[in-house]
Design a protein around this nucleic acid. Structure first.
Length: 890
RNA sequence: GGGCGGGUAGCUCAGGUGGGAGAGCGACGGCCUUACAAGCCGUAGGUCACAGGUUCGAGCCCUGUUCCGCCCACCA
């Protein structure tokens, strides 16, 4: 037992560093591969290597750590796999910007040197995110840390690619894809963010080849008209029924284009005529394919107009838009311009307006994979929590489109595909082939593209455990127990892991998916650097300590609701950490040895009560954590520690602890105090690991760590606590009496320094005995000089009275009493009870209620009614008595 | 255009399967009571967004309205 005093206020900084190092040194985060133990596993959502921790990470990590630490305390064999993601486009952008600041362009460097410099960047900054995870207290098994581009994972990526290709689930083709001109790469559908944009709708006339006038089309992107290869109208559209010509002249180019008829056209919109640009619009692409139209690419991949744009070639796409509009105006073909709000796609990495563009890319055929992923959730092989996300998951999976997986960047997994320069043969293979298997030539050119980042993260749950090898780790820990993630990557990541996991492991990647909220600022806005409303977790940790941050996040992590975070709240929970700290300081003043034993017969009522309450708190917290109700768990402990343990138990136990009673009582109180503090620390440890370890270590002696302790109820060294209903009822009575006296004191404005004398009366012997037996406790907590006990009789004169259950408490106020004040207080009390009575009696007069409500409910209402009636009667008679005294006196 | 979530005390939010609403912060009053002033004791504050409906009984279930937020969608 370390009896040296704790600091007066809790100082988190030093404590946190010390314990984290200790845990790592002792190997307490390391999972065992022994599969006989009950496994619990989580793979971390790998943060971007070059990233900086934000509040979303802090929440995500905190929740995972709570689960891992909780499961360890339950005795499970816990594996939490940490790691980072290479985050292709995002990282390449960061490094490019960095190089640009030094005046270096990546194209000048060449691919090899650029990739090398990204690796260097990773070496330099990749550790930052890991250090930040550690400062959050993350109990990851760092011996198994992985990176999405390390050797093993690269192997897994190639194997998956090759197998999917061989199974016909990966193909290459010319399709319209979303192109980001800034990142100069293709993007998948999901990587495009649509945003409402105030633009213009340009109405342009396409003159008939023969005759006057012509149909008018509307477009928001006039520059694309240069690539039009048809004009479409609805087959039933009467306005165009009589067109004798089947060709119109495309303005500015003089090209003749056909008029086609297709039901895709909406007759209601504008003039019912639609321009068709197969190379620059996904819908037009589909229409073009159906009608076998030419695909004319007028905007190049860099956003510059191509030679096919004629006079406009070489212009930037937006510049070209202006020029086209000007020219059309000149020619009188621009009929009108309307303001028009429509949604515009932006790159999710750099916010540049994306350009739908014709391009040859690699795709994953998602249909068959998605179906199995849907079935798995339908059959509850994987649960989604909260359940409401299931419908989003189904909706997305059911409407999934093929996944464009090639990216025209340099940082990432290069696609393992080669083309033979002599015969054009396409070779997909794990290893680089030395010669063409078809013609034997040696000139093979590797596809320069890399894979979408999410392709490698889709394999994360099994690639990190050694797949494609059949490892013991996979055998023991796959499927993982739960995936904890934010909904923003439900589709990007979770959906793809489901597809890949099921396909390659023949088993879902996780049993549960817990989807947590987004952390917003105090006004409910998304935190972002541009809005300047970001709260940096590292600042918070610096100022308030990790435990405060973690407890705050947990306490606000109600399912299905976003967290609005403000510093004020973090400060509030720091008070809680400090409260716990001080309670421990108090305990250490009295506890002299670890693991004291108590004889249950020598326990006092407060001892029995707090042990019973502890049992309930323990059950409730375990239940909450088993069901991902993090906020409930945190709040249960908050209330137990503050409102029950500190406010009542410690105060009630003081006389015994200070040795005011006999030795036996003192020992019992110390033992109970030790036990409650001990178990409380364990129950709190998943939420606030540092402060609990610091206190626990002192409490339990110097050996071991709280991390290896056992959750209450699972350690045979201690007798299991049970709920003690009698103790709870008796304590309720005593606390009620004490509160009643304090209330009267407050309302009467009587200084706490004045000791009062009270009379407690009850018709029930049990009540009188309980009061008599705890005379001292009541006196201490209510600051009384004297307690008299009597049966239900006349209320003593000159007193203020309150009714507590079956007892009435009369506080002697001779000399101090202010009669008018007391009458006011009684009136208030009576009015309150009266109001309650009205509701109750209304119910009891209702025949429907009496005949249809369950017996127990009726009984409850009746009891309450009778109790209230009695109380009111007593209070009224008190009031009359005071009134008569008052009138005698005056 | 579809879908989802939310509107509860001044503020931020809890309120599994319907039985007269809770907490924290803030406010107000009183306390340096030997763990804690980052504290202790007490008090006040709510037509549970609005309107209907189901029910003996609705914050909770149903319908409609309204205001916020989010997700999804190829209408030029």
């Amino acid at each position: 037992m370390d009896s040296e005093n704790l600091n007066k206020g809790y100082q988190p900084g030093e404590v946190e560093n010390r314990w984290y190092a200790y845990w790592e040194e002792q190997g307490l985060f390391t999972a065992s591969e022994d599969k006989d133990e009950k496994p619990f596993s989580i793979v971390i959502p790998p943060p971007n290597v070059t990233g900086v921790l934000h509040m979303g990470h802090a929440l995500n990590i905190t929740l995972q750590d709570i689960l891992c630490r909780y499961r360890r305390l339950c005795g499970d064999n816990v594996l939490w796999v940490p790691g980072t993601d290479h985050a292709g486009i995002a990282t390449q952008n960061v490094v490019e910007r960095h190089l640009a600041a030094e005046g270096i362009d990546r194209h000048e460097m060449g691919r090899e040197r650029f990739v090398e410099s990204v690796w260097q960047w990773r070496e330099k900054y990749g550790g930052a995110i890991i250090r930040q995870l550690k400062s959050l207290g993350a109990s990851c098994d760092w011996s198994r840390e992985r990176f999405t581009m390390d050797e093993g994972l690269s192997q897994a990526v190639r194997k998956v690619f090759v197998e999917l290709f061989e199974q016909g689930l990966i193909y290459r083709g010319n399709y319209i894809i979303n192109w980001c001109p800034r990142c100069s790469t293709a993007l998948a559908e999901i990587e495009v963010e649509h945003e409402e944009h105030e633009g213009r709708l340009y109405h342009i006339m396409y003159p008939y080849k023969y005759g006057q006038g012509g149909p008018v089309v509307a477009t928001t992107r006039p520059e694309t008209m240069l690539g039009d290869t048809a004009l479409a109208v609805h087959p039933d559209d009467k306005r165009y029924k009589d067109i004798s010509e089947d060709r119109v002249i495309l303005p500015l180019t003089g090209r003749e284009i056909p008029v086609i008829r297709d039901e895709y056209v909406d007759m209601e919109f504008g003039t019912g005529a639609l321009k068709i640009t197969p190379a620059h619009d996904p819908n037009d692409f589909a229409v073009g394919e159906k009608h076998n139209l030419a695909r004319l690419k007028v905007i190049a991949d860099d956003g510059i107009m191509t030679a096919d744009a004629g006079d406009f070639a070489g212009m930037d796409r937006f510049e070209c838009r202006q020029a086209v509009v000007e020219e059309l105006k000149k020619q009188g073909l621009l009929i009108k311009i309307e303001d028009y709000t429509h949604s515009v796609g932006h790159c999710y990495r750099c916010a540049t307006v994306v350009e739908p563009n014709l391009s040859k890319q690699w795709f994953v055929k998602t249909g068959p994979l998605a179906q199995k992923a849907i079935d798995a959730v339908r059959q509850s092989k994987t649960r989604v929590i909260p359940e409401k996300w299931e419908s989003d998951y189904f909706n997305w999976m059911e409407n999934i489109r093929d996944w464009c997986i090639s990216r025209q960047i340099w940082w990432g997994h290069q696609i393992p595909a080669w083309t033979c320069e002599s015969c054009g043969e396409l070779i997909v293979s794990m290893q680089e082939p030395s010669s063409c298997p078809s013609c034997g030539a040696e000139g093979l050119v590797r596809d320069p593209d890399v894979l979408d980042t999410w392709f490698s993260s889709a394999l994360w749950p099994f690639s990190t455990m050694g797949w494609p090898e059949k490892t013991k780790l996979l055998e023991t820990f796959y499927p993982t127990s739960v995936l904890v993630t934010g909904f923003d990557i439900l589709f990007f990541w979770v959906a793809r892991m489901m597809m890949m996991g099921i396909h390659f492991m023949k088993e879902v990647p996780f049993r549960d998916v817990y989807v947590h909220a987004l952390v917003r600022d105090e006004d409910g806005k998304k935190m972002s650097k541009s809005s300047g409303n970001v709260i940096d977790p590292m600042d918070v940790i610096e100022n308030y300590g990790t435990d405060s941050l973690r407890f705050t996040l947990a306490a606000f992590a109600a399912q299905g609701r976003d967290i609005k975070l403000s510093e004020k709240r973090i400060e509030g929970y720091r008070h809680f950490i400090n409260k716990l700290w001080n309670a421990a300081r108090f305990a250490f003043m009295h506890i002299t040895e670890p693991y004291p034993v108590f004889e249950s017969q020598s326990l006092s009522l407060p001892d029995r009560w707090i042990l019973s309450r502890l049992r309930r708190a323990s059950d409730d917290v375990k239940d909450a954590l088993d069901n991902y109700h993090f906020n409930d768990g945190a709040n249960i402990m908050y209330r137990f520690v503050w409102n029950e343990f500190c406010d009542w138990y410690l105060e009630a136990a003081k006389p015994a602890l200070y040795g005011r009673y006999d030795e036996e009582k003192s020992i019992a109180a110390k033992a109970a105090l030790w036990r409650v503090l001990h178990d409380t620390l364990i129950l709190l440890h998943p939420f606030i690991p540092f402060v609990t370890e610091e206190i626990w270590h002192k409490l339990a002696g110097t050996d071991g760590s709280i991390m290896t302790a056992a959750i209450p109820g699972s350690d045979s060294r201690y007798q299991e606590l049970s709920v003690d209903k009698e103790a709870e009822d008796d304590m309720d009575l005593l606390m009620g009496i004490i509160t009643a006296v304090r209330n009267i004191r407050g309302e009467m404005n009587i200084s706490p320094s004045v000791n009062l004398s009270v009379m407690i009366q009850s018709g029930q012997q049990k009540v009188r005995e309980t009061v008599a037996g705890h005379n001292d406790m009541i006196s201490t907590l209510a600051r009384l000089s004297d307690i008299k006990i009597g049966d239900a009789g006349e209320k003593p004169a000159g007193t203020a009275t309150a009714i507590v259950g079956d007892a009435s408490v009369s506080v002697h106020l001779e000399g101090v009493i202010d009669f008018s004040k007391e009458i006011m207080r009684l009136d208030k009390e009576i009015a309150k009870l009266d109001k309650e009575m009205q509701g109750l009696s209304k119910k009891l007069e209702n025949q429907g209620f009496l005949s249809k409500a369950p017996e127990s409910v009726i009984e409850k209402v009746k009891n309450q009614y009778n109790e209230n009636a009695e109380k009111i009667e007593k209070l009224k008679s008190n009031r009359e008595k005071i009134k008569s005294i008052e009138s005698v006196q005056s």
